Simulated assay, not measured.
Amino acid sequence: MASFDFKLFRENLLSHMKAKGLKPAQLSKMAGLNPRAVKDIEEERIKNPRIQTVLALEAAMELPFGKLLGKSIDEIDSELLSLLGELDEATQKQLLMTLQSLSSNRTHSL
């Protein structure tokens, strides 16, 4: 079962920000987020950002999907990606729990 690696996400985020010469407030604004969103991630006040936040940060920095998560995803169904980006936080958590349960059940049945 895959889990969110905050340390890797944060390192990737900070590395790409530095490479592009972006400050936290600038990137937050570019991504359409709360002005402190990136600063809160940088200072580890937020350790589990919503999928919409990750997608918005990648889009603002013109990074491919999954780059900040350390994933090399060449293709993903655009309709699925769009739907994921529209989900509220509670629905995201419910979906994640369901997927984790399915993954866990699959692993135990092998």
Rank of each mutant, 00 (worst) to 15 (best):
Q94L: 03
K71Y: 15
N34K: 08
L55N: 08
N12T: 05
I41H: 09
E79Q: 07
T98M: 15
E86K: 15
K18C: 10
E44F: 00
S72K: 13
G21I: 03
M17H: 06
E86C: 12
E86N: 07
L80V: 12
S3N: 04
K47A: 04
G70E: 00
D88N: 15
D77K: 05
H108K: 11
M1L: 09
P24Y: 07
H108C: 11
N48S: 04
Q100H: 13
Q100F: 07
S104K: 15
Q26F: 04
R10F: 01
L80M: 11
R10M: 03
L80P: 05
E43I: 01
P64D: 06
G70C: 03
L68T: 07
V54P: 02
E58H: 07
I41K: 09
D5R: 12
N105K: 08
E89A: 08
L8K: 14
I73D: 02
E89Q: 06
R36K: 15
G21F: 11
Q52H: 03
R10Q: 12
A25V: 06
K47V: 01
A90P: 10
L55D: 06
I46P: 06
R36G: 08
G21M: 09
P35D: 10
N105W: 05
L22W: 10
P35V: 12
S103W: 05
A56C: 10
L63W: 02
K18Q: 13
S101C: 04
L55E: 03
A90M: 10
R50D: 12
F9V: 00
L33R: 02
M61K: 13
A25H: 01
P35N: 08
Q100L: 14
L14N: 00
E58W: 12
G32R: 13
A25F: 09
E58C: 10
G21Y: 14
T98W: 08
A90D: 14
Q94I: 02
L63C: 14
L81H: 04
A37S: 12
L99T: 08
D88Y: 10
R45W: 06
D40E: 15
L102G: 06
T53Q: 01
K67A: 14
P49W: 02
E62A: 11
A56K: 10
L13P: 00
L63T: 07
P64W: 09
G70R: 03
S103L: 05
A90V: 09
M61D: 03
F65D: 12
I46R: 05
S101K: 11
M17C: 09
I76D: 01
S78T: 12
N12V: 04
S28L: 03
L80N: 11
T53P: 00
L13S: 01
F6I: 04
G85D: 11
L33G: 02
G85F: 10
R36D: 15
I41L: 15
H108D: 10
R10T: 00
D77C: 05
E62F: 11
T53R: 06
N48A: 02
A25Q: 14
I46M: 07
M17W: 14
K39E: 14
T91L: 04
L110P: 13
E58F: 12
A37C: 15
G66K: 07
I46G: 03
H108V: 11
K93A: 05
V38C: 04
T107P: 11
L96I: 07
V38P: 07
K93V: 03
A25W: 08
Q94F: 13
L57M: 00
M30C: 03
I41F: 05
M1D: 05
